[in-house]
Each structure stands twice: as C-alpha cells, then as structure tokens.
C-alpha cells in the first residue's frame, strides 16, 4: 500500500471539505473494496476520509412503507434489520448474501454504491427497486445514478448520505456466483413496483442494467414463464475465463425466471 494521509471527520461538512481540498482524496466507507485495491497498489489516493465517525450516516428507518438506510450502514445490519425484513425482505436477503460474513460486518451500502463494481449486489437492488440515492447535495434517482463500470453520477466532494428504497409489491434477487470470487457472475433483481415491474441485472455487463423486454412481459403477466422466453443479447456483456458473454446472456434469463418464481 502506498502512503496516504488519514482523516476521520466528525461531520458531513468536514468530510466534504476534506474531500474537496484534495483531488486525489477518497472517501472511506467500510473499505472492503478500497483497502483491498490499495493493498495491491492498484489504487493510490493521497488522502482517505474515513466516514465512520459521522453519526448521521448510520441507521435504518421505516419510511412511508419503504426504508431509508444510512450510507455507512453495514451489510450485516441491513440483513438483520427487522424494518428491512418487513418492508423489503428481498433487500435483506440480498444484503445477507453480499461478499462473505466478514465483508458484511464491515462493508457499507454507500461504499458499495459509490464504488459501483460491475459485479456488486447492491446496485441491482437500487436499480431494481427504483430507489433514490441521497447525497450531501441532492437526491439522485437510481436510473440516473449508475454510469457504467465503476462510474456513478457522484461529483467530486459529493458524499452519499442514505438511500431511500420504496417498498415493492413483491421482489426477489437471485444470484449466480462466480465459482472463485463468489461475486455475481449474473445477479437479477426483479421487483413488482408501484411504477410497474423492474428487472435489474448485475455482473453480466459493464454496469448494472435493466431489461425492458422482461419488464414489459412481466407487466402483462408477472410469472416466470413471461421471462423464460426473453433472451438478452450477448453483445456487450462481460466475457472472462469464468463465463463467456453467451453463457452470461443465458444465465440472465435463467436467473430472471428464478427470481420471478422466488418473488411469488
């Protein structure tokens, strides 16, 4: 790991100021991706701004049928939360399957979203549920937040404070894991929301994406058979030694079908 300066501000304003001061500064959530990448010297921030001292970034509260979850809330806290389990059980289940036990005890919602790893789980839930990403500057709808591989709508010095997830009528997330890393080779989040069905896919492409053909088919009838025949194109999907684009495309349909079945 290269040298860096460490800051642990107690307020959001101080954190934003510290980030604004140094163009190569990075916010530190749980650090489960960032520290790992710094250890391999793949990432070289000048400063780390640890957000764990900011009380307002933590916590889960029921919010008009949905939930608002603080950006520094750990995955394990989301998985175990009675509020989340009640409002959106699929979200609690998704959080319970992120990374591994130790990652879930440390990793945070905000950190995962800001990093936007193409194989991360949370982006599928945020996009699949049509959630809103709240920052210190504004509210960003999910459809505008994710901008492709490791890219988001966040501007310099902008910090995710919480995410508001509206409760769907039903939802489920089914993940096909990479046999080595256990990240999502393909993960599909399916939700029947107030605005209609949404299907969000992670792992398969350069970033999380929706499948309009499946959503349309589910709007007509919310059943596994509706998506079973909908194929996604392999063009543009990820291809690596674990899965070709063709195999991923095939898995998107299979996982979508299983997610719809699991949503009930």
């Amino acid at each position: 790991m290269y040298q860096f300066n460490y800051h642990k501000p107690a307020s959001l304003a101080d954190a934003a100021a510290a980030l604004a001061k140094n163009p190569d500064a990075k916010a530190l959530g749980g650090g489960q991706s960032l520290i790992a990448s710094m250890k391999l010297r793949l990432s070289q921030p000048s400063d780390l701004v640890d957000l764990s001292g900011i009380a307002e970034l933590r916590g889960i509260k029921a919010d008009g049928g949905g939930v608002t979850i603080g950006a520094m809330t750990r995955h394990a806290e989301v998985a175990a939360s009675a509020e989340v389990k009640k409002a959106i059980p699929a979200l609690a289940a998704l959080a319970a399957g992120i990374g591994d036990r130790m990652v879930r005890n440390m990793g945070t919602l905000g950190g995962s979203l800001a990093n936007n790893d193409p194989a991360a789980d949370y982006p599928a839930a945020v996009l699949g549920l049509g959630a809103t990403v709240n920052t210190n500057k504004r509210k960003i709808p999910a459809d505008q937040f994710f901008k492709g591989m490791y890219e988001t709508a966040l501007e310099a010095g902008e910090i995710i404070t919480s995410v508001t997830f509206p409760a769907p009528k039903k939802a489920a997330y089914v993940k096909f894991r990479n046999p080595a890393s256990r990240y999502a080779l393909v993960g599909v989040f399916v939700a029947d929301t107030a605005g209609g069905p949404r299907v969000a896919v992670t792992g398969a492409g350069p970033g999380v994406f929706r499948v309009p053909e499946m959503e349309k088919a589910l709007a007509a009838k919310f059943s596994p058979e509706s998506v079973a025949g909908v194929k996604v194109k392999a063009d543009g999907l990820n291809s690596d030694l674990h899965a070709s684009a063709e195999y991923r495309a095939h898995l998107v349909t299979v996982m979508a079908k299983r997610a719809v079945a699991a949503a009930g």
């Binding site: 046999p179 080595a180 890393s181 256990r182 990240y183 030694l241």
Partner: peptide, 28 residues
C-alpha cells in the same frame, strides 16, 4: 473448481488470486 490458466499467447497467469482461482469452500 480448480484450474490454473495462462494466457496462451503472453503467458500471463490469469488465475493469479483467489478472485480467479477457485478454491473449494465449505459449501462446495
């Protein structure tokens, strides 16, 4: 699960971490 893979042209080790070399875990 396990298979060491090299790029057949460059000889780069493609399975150089546990991210890519699949070690058996308890639930495998």
């Amino acid at each position: 699960l396990e298979g060491c893979r090299y790029d057949p042209e460059t000889g780069q080790l493609l399975t150089g971490t546990y991210q890519d070399y699949a070690m058996p875990r308890a639930d495998d």
